[in-house]
Computed example of a mutant assay.
Amino acid sequence: MTEAALAEGSVGAAAAPARAGNKQLDLRVLLGLVLPVGLALGWEAAVRFGLAQGRLVPPPSRILQTFAELARSGELSTHVWATLWRVAVGFGLGAAGGILLGALSGISDTSRRLLDPTLQALRAIPSIAWVPLFILWLGIFEASKVALIAVGVFFPVYLGVAGAIMSVDRKLVEVGRVFRLSRSAQVRRILLPAILPETIIALRSGLGLGFMFVVAAEFMGASEGLGYLLVDGQQMGKPDRILAAIIAFALLGKLADAILVAATRPLLRWQDVSRERL
Rank of each mutant, 00 (worst) to 15 (best):
L136Y: 14
L76E: 00
M220S: 13
A202N: 06
V173K: 11
L192N: 08
L27G: 07
A124P: 09
L93E: 01
V146A: 05
E276R: 14
I190L: 13
E218G: 11
P117D: 07
P156D: 03
P266S: 02
A143E: 10
Q186T: 15
I195C: 04
A13L: 12
Q24I: 03
G94I: 02
G54H: 04
D116M: 06
A216D: 01
G92I: 03
R189H: 14
Q24C: 04
H79K: 01
I165N: 03
A147H: 02
L207N: 02
Y228I: 03
Q120L: 13
A14Q: 11
S61V: 10
R277A: 14
L226C: 10
I149A: 00
W137I: 12
S127R: 08
I149P: 03
T78N: 10
G253N: 05
D169W: 09
I99Q: 01
T83L: 00
L51E: 11
L84R: 02
G32V: 04
I135S: 08
T199L: 15
T83A: 03
L30R: 15
A147M: 07
F249V: 04
I200W: 00
A256R: 04
K254M: 12
L133C: 01
D240G: 10
F67C: 06
A124R: 12
L252M: 10
V47S: 02
A263S: 13
A245Q: 05
G227T: 03
W130K: 06
V168I: 15
S127Y: 07
V178A: 14
E276H: 13
A95D: 00
L133M: 12
F179G: 10
R189L: 12
F179A: 11
L93Q: 03
V175N: 13
A248L: 14
S144H: 09
S10C: 10
A96R: 01
L251C: 12
A5D: 14
L192I: 12
E44R: 08
L229H: 04
P17Q: 08
L76H: 06
F249P: 04
I149Q: 03
A46Q: 01
D257L: 14
S105N: 01
S144Y: 10
R188H: 14
S77L: 15
G233L: 03
R48W: 15
L251V: 13
S105R: 01
A13H: 08
D257Y: 11
E8Q: 15
A15S: 09
V173M: 12
W270L: 03
A124T: 14
M1Q: 08
P132Q: 05
D109G: 09
K145S: 02
G42R: 11
T110V: 08
G106S: 04
